[in-house]
C-alpha cells in the first residue's frame, strides 16, 4: 500500500473501537458515564506513521468523534492533534512496558481537555461539574484506556502490520 495512505489504514483500524465506545456509551447512558476512547487510540498508530500522517489521523479521529456531539467544531480534532504531536515527540515512552499507562494517561488528558469544551457550545456547566464530574469522567477515561489499550492497541498494530506499515525506526 502507498505509504501516504497509512493514516487511512490507522483510521480504519481505530474506527471500530470508536463504534464500540458508542455502543458502550448507549449501555452506560443510565449511569451518565461518558465512554471516551479517542485518546487511547492515538498511541499505537503513532509509532507507524510519519508526523504529518499522525496529525491527519488524529484530526480525523477527533472530527469523527465530535461530529455527533455538542462540541465546538474542531475542538476534539485539535486536542487530539496536540496530543499526537506530544506523543510523537516522545515515542520512546510508547514502546516501553509502560505504554499502557501512557495510553491511559493520553486518554485521560484528552477527555479532560475535550469534554469541558462542550460547555462552550452547550451552555455553561456549573462549578460542581467542573470540580468533581470532570475528574470522575477523566478517571473513567483513564481506566478505559488502561483496560482497553492492550486489546485496541494490538488490533491496530496487527492491522497496520498487515497493511504494510511497520513500526518506524527511532533516530
Amino acid at each position: 500500500m502507498t505509504p501516504s495512505l497509512g493514516w487511512l489504514v490507522a483510521l480504519a483500524a481505530s474506527y471500530p473501537w470508536l463504534l464500540a465506545g458508542d455502543l458502550l456509551g448507549d449501555l452506560l447512558a443510565p449511569w451518565h458515564l461518558l465512554v471516551f476512547l479517542p485518546g487511547l487510540l492515538l498511541s499505537t498508530p503513532l509509532l507507524r506513521l510519519r508526523p504529518w500522517q499522525a496529525l491527519l489521523f488524529a484530526a480525523c479521529l477527533g472530527l469523527a468523534y465530535e461530529s455527533r456531539r455538542p462540541l465546538p467544531h474542531g475542538s476534539a480534532a485539535f486536542v487530539l492533534m496536540a496530543l499526537a504531536a506530544v506523543l510523537q515527540a516522545n515515542r520512546h515512552l510508547l514502546v516501553r512496558r509502560r505504554a499502557h499507562l501512557v495510553a491511559a494517561a493520553a486518554n485521560l488528558a484528552a477527555c479532560a481537555l475535550v469534554v469541558p469544551l462542550a460547555s462552550l457550545d452547550h451552555g455553561v456547566v456549573g462549578w460542581g461539574a467542573w470540580l468533581w464530574a470532570l475528574p470522575v469522567q477523566a478517571a473513567f477515561a483513564g481506566l478505559l484506556g488502561l483496560v482497553l489499550h492492550p486489546l485496541a492497541g494490538s488490533f491496530q498494530a496487527a492491522l497496520l502490520d498487515r497493511a504494510g506499515f511497520p513500526q518506524l525506526a527511532e533516530p
Binding site: 458515564l33 461518558l34 465512554v35 455538542p70 469534554v115 462542550a118 464530574a133
Partner: peptide, 13 residues
C-alpha cells in the same frame, strides 16, 4: 441508533 448521557451532554441519534 446511539445515545450518550454524560455529565456534560445528552444526545440521541
Amino acid at each position: 441508533a446511539a445515545r450518550e448521557s454524560g455529565a456534560w451532554w445528552s444526545s440521541l441519534t
